[in-house]
Amino acid sequence: MKKLFKEFLKGIFRENPTFALALGLCPTLAVSTSIVNGFGMGVAATFVILGSNIIVSAIRNFIPSKIRIPCFIVIIATFVTIVELVMKAYFPLLSKALGIFVPLIVVNCIVMARAEAFASKHTVVKSIFDGLGMGAGFTLALVLISGIREAFGNGTLLGLVIVRNFEPALLFILAPGALLVIGILIGIVNLLSQRR
């Protein structure tokens, strides 16, 4: 049990997909303009990672290694399409805000990386915890980045005004702000892990 918990934790800290592995940065840059968007994207990606991890590890002995990549892609694409349809049906506003980046989870490297590097070599249970950990790490990173960007760039948190008469710095809502925030956060994470 303790070992499984470790698999979960590593996705949040030591192997955080955004801050340590620097994977999936493209959606991170694009959708992290508000906490709602960031969280929605994180949950959607978590669902896809979890689903593809489970299936890939379940059929890992059945798939010959020569054709594993096409199989992984089909599995991942299936989960992404499910997410897209469900989101359109039940969360239309979120789906409109995230736009093209929901279908683009297909090419999010975290999903592929976990399927290839972890799920195809480990048991289903372990893969579940790995997927949950990676998803949680990705969601946390997204919420952190989008929180900072929303607060400084729009003056709000979860759509609520923080301080009256604050003049938001538009840079943070625009693309350069995303790069700046991610860079500074990665710097801080590295600084903290060095000191420890």
Binding site: P168, A169, L170
Partner: peptide, 8 residues
């Protein structure tokens, strides 16, 4: 550049 983009 920061100022120009942030508070045009």
């Amino acid at each position: 550049a920061f100022l120009q983009i942030s508070w045009p």
